[in-house]
Design a protein around this nucleic acid. Structure first.
Lengths: 331, 331
DNA sequence: GGTTTCAGTGAAACCGGTTTCACGAACATA
DNA sequence: TATGTTCGTGAAACCGGTTTCACTGAAACC
């Protein structure tokens, strides 16, 4: 594990200086005379010395790492979240420790263990219990993603109420009356808010919402399952509001494969505005949310020593109209 | 960062024993009399003491962490790889440090830094230069994924030659003569092998292969781009062999959206056998590769102290025939 | 010329654990 | 009773860095 036994003290001995001086040269933390610095640098160069990360971290009382806790991983949403978080962490020289709990039985223990290895931790809402969040918050700085702030830590999320604007658009502009919702409100806080906004828009406009959502997960394959369930019901709804783009695309792929037309036979909408949304035919009407910014903002709240994060930070989202809801492209 | 100043020595003082005894109780490494053990355990319980991870790691000369280096992250393939790797690492109590280089300019430096924080490192082929792999290999155990072994470390990959079997199937069983290949052979070692096998099968059967592949990335949106490029060429090929399922699905989504029929107007095949492949209509003919096993095997090679990994480990893959190549479902 | 600064340096303490080693007591053997 | 084991324990060294503190010699000031 260690660099061929070249330690700071060994370098000091070779260069004929004290360990303190090597440390000062190595990290540039204080003035060292040119002569000694050159001697030390030469030894470092020749031996390929690299400061041991554990020793340094122990002395600095700082891990130089951030933790990221997910419920699981799938699709471009999490990919983007992960990339954004990692990019921001690398910017400040921090490493990323990943914990994709995937609903393991021992998630709580793993999260608590993780807290002992990082300086800050981003936790995706709905992954771990409040009790564990509280315990962890007393050890390291925590920021919740897509949840709400609490006594101990801040949160960053995106504005899910635009789902309401989207629903109103379908009801008012297009005059659709029978809408379906694809997603599992109890499965994630994000879907909960979107379903709530979907219901609220119905009440506002005075149209009866569906009694139940079509409860499926958030993957593309879940969209196919949802499509089959909807098609099996006899009468088609006018439009389907999907909890995210992934399911919307899976649903489109399925209904197109059966020879149905979108939006003529069935309008479809998503949420995310991922890459594919603009590329399919018809283009997918959706809500654009700044996923990468969500991730980078979270990471910055964790690393920035100045900010004492508190409260909810809600990033704006935007309705994106394309062809799949019935809007004419370019009109 | 530390647990409210409760250190091992503090616990020792409270319990009236030596630090050594607390260490022995805490890790169960040696016999301690019931009386002293109880005293120590009581103090630990009451104070909520947890051994500091850095101190322990420094003394044990072991990080308790594995590194995972990716070229980037996208799609179900990397998701599965990540999940498998993480699950296996957690099994042995190791954490996962992620580095999704994403072709940053300072990737090499980050990889070298990462090497100082982990006990072992899995590197996806094509991510970092050979020189860096060599340097890192001298510090920690390294296993290459999807590449070939070299002087310093082993590799784990899947059998890409089944692409050849798939190509032969299209040429011989279905009698297709004009095949297209979607993927960027220079972009990743996996695609290189698949393109090579595609060419070899053509030569074997005695059919002229296409002069050039359709060079696009591995995401679903790249499949849409490829489809548009192919459709723009005037005459359609008989079949399209895609470098992975993602692009195949994107391509299918695009051609279906244009009113073309699969496989009647255009046969399509993929590689991976991801979840969606069996769910679309028509089902996607593809090659099943054990992605999760690839990941878990790699992780196991890194953690297992017994095995001295060497050479190439190639996991078997399997041709999966569904409707998209022209085979009749169930026939 | 004497007194302040001040930059440069090393000894030693420290971060928080683990482990070797020596020692004493209890027990088993001759 | 004398001798040899075994067990439990604490002192101290160690992992590999950082940092405080005291001290030196040289430059700046009056």
């Amino acid at each position: 594990m260690s660099n061929r036994r070249v330690s700071l003290r060994w370098v000091a001995e070779q260069a004929g200086v004290s360990p303190a001086t090597v440390s000062r040269v190595s990290r540039g933390s204080a003035q060292v005379s040119p002569e000694l610095r050159d001697r030390v640098l030469r030894v470092i160069e020749e031996s390929g010395y690299r400061p041991n990360h554990l020793g340094r971290a122990l002395a600095e009382v700082r891990h130089g790492a951030l933790g990221l806790v997910f419920p699981g991983l799938s699709g471009p949403y999490f990919t983007e979240l992960l990339q954004g978080f990692e990019a921001e962490a690398l910017e400040t020289g921090d490493s990323v420790l990943l914990l994709a709990s995937h609903y393991r039985a021992d998630t709580d223990a793993k999260v608590i263990d993780l807290a002992g290895r990082v300086d800050g931790m981003a936790i995706h809402a709905g992954t771990v219990s409040d009790a564990v969040v509280e315990e962890v918050s007393q050890q390291v700085r925590v920021v919740m993603m897509c949840g709400t702030a609490n006594r101990w830590n801040a949160s960053v999320s995106t504005d899910n109420t635009t789902s309401g604007a989207l629903t109103r658009h379908l009801l008012v502009e297009h005059g659709y009356r029978r809408l379906a919702f694809v997603g599992h409100p109890e499965g994630s806080p994000d879907v909960t808010s979107r379903w709530d906004a979907f219901l609220a828009a119905h009440h506002e406009v005075g149209v009866a919402p569906p009694v139940q959502p079509v409860r499926v997960g958030l993957q593309q394959s879940d969209g196919v399952i949802a499509a089959e369930r909807i098609l099996a019901e006899g009468t088609l709804p006018d439009a389907v509001v999907c909890a995210n783009d992934e399911t919307a695309l899976g649903l489109m792929l399925c209904v197109l494969g059966r020879g149905l037309r979108v939006p003529d036979d069935l309008a479809v909408t998503g949420f995310d505005d991922m890459n594919m949304a603009a590329m399919v035919r018809p283009g997918l009407t959706t809500v654009r949310q700044p996923v990468r910014e969500l991730a980078t903002t979270t990471a910055r709240l964790l690393t920035d020593p100045d900010t004492r994060p508190a409260g909810d930070l809600v990033l704006p989202t935007e309705l994106v109209l394309r062809g799949s809801c019935g809007c004419r492209p370019g009109g």
